Computed example of a mutant assay.
Amino acid sequence: MKNIHPLSDVQSTYIGENTRIWQFVVVLPNAKIGENCNICSHCLIESGSFIGNNVTVKSGVQIWEGVKIEDNVFIGPNVTFTNDKTPRSKVYPEKFSETIIRKGASIGANATILPGIVIGEGAMVGAGAVVTKDVKPRATVLGNPAKEFEND
Rank of each mutant, 00 (worst) to 15 (best):
E17V: 09
E17A: 11
E17W: 05
N18R: 08
N18Q: 09
N18A: 00
N18K: 12
N18Y: 03
T19S: 10
T19N: 02
T19V: 11
T19C: 12
T19Y: 09
T19W: 04
R20P: 07
I21A: 08
I21R: 01
I21T: 13
W22L: 12
W22F: 15
Q23M: 02
Q23D: 13
Q23K: 07
Q23G: 11
F24N: 10
F24P: 02
F24T: 03
F24Q: 05
F24W: 09
V25S: 04
V25H: 09
V25D: 11
V25M: 02
V25P: 03
V26S: 11
V26K: 06
V26D: 01
V26E: 06
V26P: 00
L28M: 06
L28E: 13
P29I: 10
P29A: 14
P29H: 02
N30W: 07
N30Q: 12
N30L: 04
N30V: 06
N30F: 01
A31T: 09
A31Q: 05
A31G: 10
K32R: 15
K32F: 02
I33C: 02
I33H: 13
I33L: 02
I33A: 11
I33M: 07
I33W: 05
I33S: 04
G34Y: 11
E35Q: 14
E35K: 15
E35L: 08
N36K: 14
N36G: 15
N36A: 05
C37R: 09
C37A: 05
I39H: 01
C40V: 03
C40L: 14
C40D: 12
S41N: 12
S41L: 05
S41G: 14
H42W: 01
H42F: 05
C43K: 00
C43T: 03
C43L: 01
C43P: 14
L44T: 13
L44H: 09
L44M: 12
L44I: 13
I45C: 05
E46R: 07
E46V: 01
S47R: 09
S47L: 02
S47F: 01
S47E: 12
G48P: 06
G48A: 07
G48V: 08
G48K: 04
G48Y: 05
G48R: 02
S49Q: 07
S49R: 12
F50D: 01
F50L: 10
F50N: 00
I51E: 04
I51W: 01
I51A: 08
I51V: 15
G52M: 10
G52L: 06
G52D: 08
N53A: 10
N53V: 06
N53R: 09
N54L: 01
N54G: 08
V55A: 07
V55K: 04
T56A: 00
T56K: 15
V57T: 15
V57Q: 07
V57P: 09
V57W: 08
V57A: 12
V57G: 10
V57N: 03
K58Q: 15
K58C: 15
K58A: 12
S59V: 12
S59W: 08
G60L: 04
G60R: 03
G60A: 09
G60K: 08
V61A: 08
Q62W: 01
Q62M: 09
Q62A: 04
Q62P: 06
Q62G: 10
